[in-house]
Design a protein around this nucleic acid. Structure first.
Lengths: 336, 336
DNA sequence: GAGGCTTGATCAAACGATTGAGCAAATCTA
DNA sequence: TAGATTTGCTCAATCGTTTGATCAAGCCTC
């Protein structure tokens, strides 16, 4: 590849002149003629600034890492799309890092930042990610933004409108006449499950519908955990007529278990899942969902980490626009 | 962050000594005592080699880019997992780049390599990626490996056992007694669709089952295109009793259209899709699939690009192990 | 026309790591 | 014990950019 000095030689000027012209610094006092010659030479040689040299000099890479617990996660691809789009606009690139079980996430993050590979880190906090994993972040040594989880202290975060989302699900079921509504929620230790739980209770209270204590489970977001939670409800003497499931994967698990038990959805039981995905259309019955603004979660997170890197500010944001949206399909119906 | 000279100062030696010890070069003639002091100092300062400096000096980043057409693609996450795992073992990191429609892929790739951000590129060739997009790769200026597509010339590639996969699907249907078997295939221009088509025809011939010309469509791999293809078959006077669908997404689309038309699967028609995903279990009916070795595709591709970078060799590989595997679910049954 | 600005360029020192060459001191060889 | 070799370390150049400092002209101003 052509270097600055190649371009300089061809244009008959010094490297500094070339550098100033091509990075068009405001302080560049260059004559129009030389500028032209430099630009021509650069174009002819197809010059591209060397990434490593620039990063070394500026101690800035314009790369952020996105650390995710799991690629098969339903929410990943939309989130990534949002992050990617935001990054492009800000002149950044995204390095994807899986937080695998082998190495603690803290190690991965410390490497990424310690070696100067990235300027900052976006961390999608998963169920299996403990607070210990977030030590370098909590300590503030690493410019980071937590996605979908809040932490005390000066850590930035961006979260979904979880309360509102659960509320939309509840309101939908209430409007269909349901009064016995259960909740299949994520692990009680996770932030998003807590907020969805709050939203569920708040919406139920607002609708004047009582919540039975054994109508709430907290087993987790996976399909398997959703199945297990469904079994719990099926074994109850006083069963709910509708379920809000905090995650689409768990909702699929619930559908699976319902089918296995010969419980008809939606005739015997209505189910609404939080998060939308194209696969919801292929399930049987097609799953009614609450679409959450995942794309925007990605975009806003990218903007947040950008600001964090630039000014050090650490905000806690909630995505407000667009609000959670009900996507009615065939897994919910009027109470029988 | 601590630099080499920080470590050198603390250990009371020169930077060169530190560099040699920490990168434990074989030519390093260092006494045990000094080695110890250096290692201690490095540990105490939590020294990590600066990525940019190393990359600049060695003109090598130990990063490869994975260029994908689409993140929501069913095959992406397993592929990525394989690439990631392979990368870890070889001491590489993976930069994920979406080949979006805005900018031609060739531009993206040229940037990535031209700026020295990556040592090589893995390109998952999508339907929308034309030959023009691959110019810098075909020219051989960029160390690259094509995933799932072959090209003439000295371009390396790794592909799935597509013929065998289609064969497994056909054999399954034949063993269930089907004699009228149709194929819903990808776009005729794509390499994988061509190979799956060949595999289909070969397996049919081997089984002594004739193929009707209008029992093969080539509309594409997406859900929508699968629906459209299904409509074609439904409008036929002489309809097949079973369908091989070249892609799981298209198979979901076919299921959707079958349901819309009141065609019962598998009672009226059997369907088997190529590629497996956990979502196949949630469809109605649960989709019988042929699981393709996507994880291995990723791993082998990573190894291939590594070799390509190291020695310049360009091989065309087919994943042989594990072979395509039938995952029987409920969308296929004995011919009625 | 001497001194002071402005303009348009170059010089040179970083950034942090790698690595061939150089050089004392220690050890070996005969 | 003189000379050769090995051992253990340091020197210094280099990778490609950025950027403050410097400097030679040209142009005002009075």
């Amino acid at each position: 590849m052509a270097t600055l000095s190649d371009v300089a030689a061809r244009a008959g000027v010094s490297v500094s002149a070339v550098s100033r012209v091509l990075s068009n610094a405001s302080t560049s006092r260059v004559s129009g003629a030389t500028r032209q010659r430099i630009e021509d030479a650069a174009r002819e040689l197809d010059y591209r600034p060397n990434f490593a040299a620039r990063a070394l000099k500026l101690s800035r890479t314009n790369v952020v890492a996105l650390v995710v617990p799991d690629l098969t996660n339903a929410i990943f691809s939309e989130l990534m799309r949002g992050v990617d789009e935001g990054a492009r606009e800000l002149g950044y690139m995204v390095l994807l890092a899986r937080a695998e079980s082998l190495r603690p996430a803290s190690e991965t993050i410390a490497h990424l930042v310690g070696e100067g590979r990235v300027d900052g880190v976006l961390v999608q906090v998963g169920d299996s990610m403990s607070d210990a994993d977030l030590i370098p972040i909590m300590e503030g040594t690493v410019p980071a933004v937590l996605i979908n989880s809040r932490r005390a202290g000066g850590v930035g975060s961006v979260v979904l409108p979880d309360q509102a989302g659960a509320g939309v699900a509840v309101d939908h079921l209430v409007s269909l006449g349901h009064r016995k509504i259960g909740l299949i929620n994520g692990l009680p230790t996770t932030d998003s499950a807590q907020r969805r739980g709050e939203g569920f209770l708040a919406a139920m209270a607002a609708a004047g519908v009582p919540v039975q204590p054994d109508h709430v489970t907290n087993l987790g977001y996976t399909s398997t955990q959703g199945r297990a939670a469904f079994s719990h409800f099926a074994s109850l003497a006083d069963q709910p007529s509708a379920l809000v499931v905090s995650n689409i994967n768990a909702a699929f698990g619930a559908l699976l278990e319902a089918r296995a038990r010969g419980i008809r959805v939606p005739e015997d039981l209505s189910i609404v899942g939080i998060h939308d995905a194209w696969t919801a259309e292929n399930s049987w019955p097609p799953l009614t969902t609450v679409k959450m603004p995942l794309y925007e979660l990605g975009r806003v997170s990218m903007n947040a980490i950008f600001e964090r890197i630039r000014s050090g500010s650490a905000e806690d944001l909630v995505i407000g626009d667009p609000p959670p949206l009900l996507v009615p399909r065939a897994s919910t119906a009027k109470v029988g």
